[in-house]
Design a protein around this nucleic acid. Structure first.
Lengths: 200, 200
DNA sequence: CAGTTAAAGCGGCGGTCTTTGCTTTAAGCA
DNA sequence: TGCTTAAAGCAAAGACCGCCGCTTTAACTG
């Protein structure tokens, strides 16, 4: 008896179909935009029968969300051990991921309000972004450093990045992302220094 | 001959139909979400023939955009003459507008990438938001005060508000909006004071 | 008040998406 | 190597959307 309890038959054909469909989705998104990603179109492109896609994913939004989820779990920048550097890396990585063709489309697809609970996609998307930033923050906290809260990072770094990419505001590049992190860290350092002076 | 050159017959029935359609769109958006706003659905709800809506607006996106545009032009907070207070008012107003049922849906609809130029909706949406904040900034600049740039306001105030509302992060209320403005203004004041000290 | 004519209403056509029951294929396992 | 069965393929039926030609209504004008 196999150890796996679910995904009872993931090997061979199923895996092949899943891969083909995922590749087709990525291609279609960055060729025609997320709103053109319809199940028949994906199926045609993947050389797969539409009903197979319907049975497995149900809706186009769910499919997009699935692809987006796998996409972000693939590569992650490793941490150096310096809070500012690590935050910069994650910020730049976030921006890069968001900027590549179709990146915003995936974001929008996950945010689309027709999946299940109408909040599940949002939660998942936010959680994935948060996790990236939580790692360096917690590492620094374990080292005893003063760190900004996660919410603060979201407000000061992530939100501006997303906002600017969505509205395609010019000048939103890596150095800008690093600047956001630097500003935040400087504010924290100044605050910590002020506290230290005040308590002395 | 009437003075109006276009909108050659806006009175009576046309106006009535337009009002009914707009109301139906608002209702549908906050009941079923923007993706359920289809022209037949709107027409049914408004008690209007679908072809009338097709002829007038063409696509569901255009209709959404039209409604969103009118919606924001209705009421605007008047300015007091104090930069911080004015920014706070606009920020709170922005948050309120975004938070009411369907507010985010309209945002998402305008951002959707299937209208015309694929950027027109974005431009319009950003421009409307920017205009709100530009007014108090320019007024303050005319008074000779030191003001943050519009981009800075977008990064530090607008982006967090949108981000938090989209992801429905708890604790995003009026006092939070005011706090964002206060932080930004404090930073500007501190910077100005520092400059003044440094140049003395 | 009567004529003009935008604009709304109506019916139907074509196309795409979605669903569903049934058949076929090929992993996983003894 | 065969058996079992999950999953893919297939095809037909249904639903809905978007569009278009024609008819009807009712604002504007003189």
């Amino acid at each position: 008896m196999p150890a796996k309890s679910k995904d009872s038959r993931p090997g061979g054909r199923s895996a092949r179909v899943r891969a083909a469909v995922h590749r087709a989705v990525v291609d279609l998104v960055q060729e025609a935009g997320a709103d053109k990603v319809t199940i028949p179109a994906v199926a045609r492109r993947a050389g797969v029968n539409p009903s197979s896609v319907y049975r497995r994913w149900g809706t186009a939004s769910a499919l997009l969300a699935d692809v987006a989820a796998r996409r972000q779990d693939e590569e992650t920048p490793e941490l150096v051990g310096d809070l500012r550097q690590d935050l910069e890396r994650v910020a730049v990585w976030t921006l890069t991921d968001l900027s590549r063709p179709g990146g915003v489309a995936f974001f929008r697809a996950e945010v689309a309000p027709d999946v299940d609970d109408r909040k599940a996609g949002l939660r998942a998307c936010l959680e994935r972004v948060s996790a990236r930033f939580r790692a360096p923050l917690e590492a620094a906290a374990r080292r005893g450093e003063t760190t900004p809260s996660l919410e603060r990072v979201l407000d000061r770094v992530v939100a501006p990045l997303y906002f600017r990419v969505v509205f395609s505001i010019p000048g939103t590049d890596e150095s800008f992302a690093r600047g956001l992190v630097a500003e935040l860290c400087d504010a924290v350092d100044a605050g910590a220094a002020g506290m230290a002076r005040g308590q002395r």
